[in-house]
Write a protein that binds this DNA or RNA. Structure first.
Length: 317
RNA sequence: GCCGGGGUAGCUCAGAGGUAGAGCGCGGCCCUGAAAAGGCCGGCGUCGGCGGUUCGAUUCCGUCCCCCGGCA
């Protein structure tokens, strides 16, 4: 039996109501919220990343708006930031509640990463140029020569993963697969309670459509217009789901109707991928509904009450 | 009503006398520092209905129904 401070993790696809549930739990259990979201770490890109949708009231939310549009950010960076904030929240005697939509970031945070070389923009630029000149399959053949194990695990057309594997090899002079053997730096000192939100698929898809409409009604398109005056269109957050389509619309490449249609559609596909990723996450207690549903909230509180008698005892508010 | 074009997967469409395919969609899945990224797998079907010819018809013939143009 592992011991340590309790750490709540709420995971689930986009629009499943993670924030609403987190806020409710934070109010009841003296918690602080830590976002685990690869897009919310960016400043200024607020409406489309869902930052402005939830009503946080007095609850404090961390790991949101950390960096500027022109900065890079990785799963490793997230792990470092998140663990630092986690320690602070715990030191304050509050219950940390993580809302997780980015599977890779959550894994880096909880399970850690193997000690691999970090990203190298220069090296990448060269590799990508190489791929452009000699064709994508060229890089895969190169990887097969240098790190056969990784080459077998990565599809020849999966360029981003091939590039990463080569980037690791050229910096470490050792194949990625060997470096993995060192293991991961898992989070220690916490008892992790994972709550999964999984509403019925048709309901979730309907909710996604509604949420996109809400974001647009909140002035999303204007936000994009303003951001385009401040940052070059190549800035990473303009590539996020939704921002990508709205930028295309503002450039005259898509009608507004078509852009909205694509945003809804691609968001549904994204939610499906999130579900696939989270399904194999170990030790998750699943709830078949939305996090803003009072019935689900009661179920969750009851479940937590069993696991944390102390927490429920002083949460009679 | 007449002439022409067309009815094949959820959608757009290709195809051929031996019970059918593509793209998208949809579903399943993968993932160790750009992950809201990227990739892999799966055809999910009364080939409009009914007759006929044929060993065999979704394909050929007849007929009916429906859609789109044009002429009335």
């Amino acid at each position: 039996m592992r011991t340590g401070h309790p750490l709540l993790v709420i995971l689930g696809p986009t629009a499943s109501g993670k924030s609403a549930l987190a806020i409710r739990l934070a109010e009841r259990l003296a918690g602080e919220i830590l976002a685990c979201d690869s897009t919310q770490v960016y400043r200024d890109f607020d409406i489309g990343t869902g930052k402005d949708i939830a009503e946080y009231r007095g609850t404090s939310q961390h790991l949101v708006g950390l960096i500027g549009a022109l900065e890079g950010f990785t799963a490793g960076d997230y792990k470092e930031h998140a663990r630092r904030v986690l320690a602070q929240v715990t030191a304050r005697g509050h219950l940390p509640i993580v809302t997780a939509g980015s599977g890779l970031y959550l894994r880096a945070f909880l399970e850690g990463l193997s000690p691999l070389p970090r990203r190298s923009p220069e090296l990448r630029a060269r590799l990508v140029q190489c791929a452009g000149e000699r064709g994508g399959a060229y890089l895969h053949r190169m990887l097969a020569r240098l790190d056969a194990t990784s080459a077998r695990a990565i599809a020849p057309r999966d360029v981003p993963k091939i590039v990463r594997a080569l980037e690791v090899y050229f910096q470490a002079r050792r194949p990625r697969s060997e470096l993995f053997a060192a293991g991961r730096d898992a989070l220690e000192g916490y008892v992790v309670i994972k709550l999964g939100l999984l509403p019925p698929r048709p309901d979730l898809y309907r909710r996604i459509d509604e949420r996109v409409e809400q974001m647009l009604a909140a002035g999303w398109l204007d936000e994009v217009r303003r951001l385009l005056q401040r940052f070059p269109p190549t800035a990473k957050p303009f590539g996020f789901l939704g921002y990508r389509q709205l930028v295309a619309h503002l450039r005259g490449e898509l009608t507004f109707t078509e852009a909205v249609k694509r945003i809804k559609h691609e968001t549904r596909q994204f939610a499906k991928r999130q579900i696939t990723w989270f399904r194999k996450e170990p030790d998750v207690r699943w709830f078949a509904g939305f996090g803003d549903d009072p019935a689900i909230q009661r179920e969750v509180l009851a479940y937590i009450g069993e696991l944390l008698p102390a927490a429920s005892a002083n949460s009679s508010a």
